[in-house]
Design a protein around this nucleic acid. Structure first.
Lengths: 224, 224
DNA sequence: TTGTTATTTTTGCGATCGCATTTTATAAAA
DNA sequence: TTTTATAAAATGCGATCGCAAAAATAACAA
């Protein structure tokens, strides 16, 4: 008699590589401008270059990587124009997702949001930028995931995949300059609006949140 | 002395295959549910399966293809829920793009739009669905391309890449049922608003355009 | 040191091979 | 005819090879 366990689902290698690269991108381990060559990456990861090529092409399709004329993949540099553009498009998608989420969020979702908001405030007080960025992502996507629209969620994810690497330039920094952004914290107010099913309030606050981050980074970010 | 011509830029094969597949998708040559196997496609295209694999993965990254548990790629079936979702997200992105385009459109752009609008009306009168769909795509993207936001344009393109194959189910049909959608034609009014720089009017009309198409297809489309 | 040329290494990319699994076709049995 | 068992073909996927182009390095001259 066989044991009552499902067989181990071994993911394809190219899927594993993709996830690792995607995570490395979003957690800011790769600096903009960095060139990613399939052979070298393959050697690092201990695979052949084939699965790496697959993963790189997928990331490029999502515009998380850029293809040089010679075919090499580069983490695109962030210019002010591009950042401006991405943030403006965030303003189109994310408040809309939040508005839809207002009706969908259940008690469990709200509970989680309250917890993340606490962690977020703590991170801000500690001036812990890494924790702040982590929980901020967690917070926003807890809302967006509740919008009930897979397609809109997907679009937002591709936007974050492009902005993410840039945000992480602040990782590890503790300049006083950064206090500003950490201190204006709409998260608690957003939770309150969500509890009250106040969709206009959520949209208003989230818009301000993104705008403030936009303005702050246009000032303090290191652009190409 | 060499001739004054730039060297012939030979695109990589996987790029050619990608473009061909992408075009086949958007022009509805591939029916939803159709399974795309790299080896068979490669044989059809006269290449090895490697460049085909690349192209398929890119399309899958954009959600234009779906990956079965065994790794095969399928053109995803269109359910009412998915169509609903995609059209709702279109309503988020496209009017926003159009609003931005109002300020950017120059005389040349408006001229082209007027021409396309004429072709569109003619196609509607002729009940020529293929021509209608073709010019409709042309018309909308002439507006969106003028929005000046590469990221928003990209998001809209991924949405159309998913909806496109489904729309083409009507290709070749000439039922009377289809008159309805072909007759409500906001395009001329949209052009007028664009000429007047009336952004609210554009948003209003485009929203109605998408909504009407949405409602019509929910009625008359063949869902999975 | 600085600029130029030659040499070596790396890289993108397509083809082909091999293995394990799945799918399809075929044959046998009910 | 329908169902089951068996054989054959097709498929996903990773590795490896080879070629041409590009990039990096070394060698040399000014």
């Amino acid at each position: 008699m066989t044991i009552g366990l499902a067989p181990v689902e071994t993911q394809p290698l190219h899927e594993v590589v993709y996830e690792r690269l995607r995570h490395a991108l979003m957690s800011g381990q790769l600096a903009p401008g960095r060139k990613l060559t399939s052979r070298k990456l393959a050697k690092e990861l201990g695979t052949s270059d084939m699965p790496v090529r697959s993963a790189l092409m997928r990331l490029q399709a999502l515009r998380a990587l850029e293809q040089l004329p010679n075919g090499s993949m580069v983490l695109p540099a962030m210019t002010k124009a591009r950042f401006d553009d991405l943030m403006t498009t965030r303003l189109v998608c994310e408040p809309a997702a939040a508005r839809q989420a207002v009706e969908q969020l259940d008690r469990g979702g709200l509970l989680k949001l309250r917890q993340v908001a606490v962690a977020l405030t703590a991170a801000a007080e500690d001036q812990d930028i890494d924790a702040y960025l982590y929980h901020n992502h967690d917070f926003k996507f807890a809302i967006y995931a509740a919008c009930g629209s897979p397609s809109l969620l997907f679009l937002i994810e591709t936007l974050w995949l492009q902005v993410g690497p840039f945000l992480r330039q602040f990782s590890g920094q503790f300049d006083n300059d950064l206090r500003g952004i950490l201190e204006l914290d709409y998260h608690d107010e957003i939770v309150k609006c969500l509890e009250d099913r106040d969709s206009e309030g959520v949209v208003e606050l989230l818009t301000r949140d993104i705008r403030d981050g936009h303005a702050f980074l246009m000032e303090n970010g290191q652009f190409e």
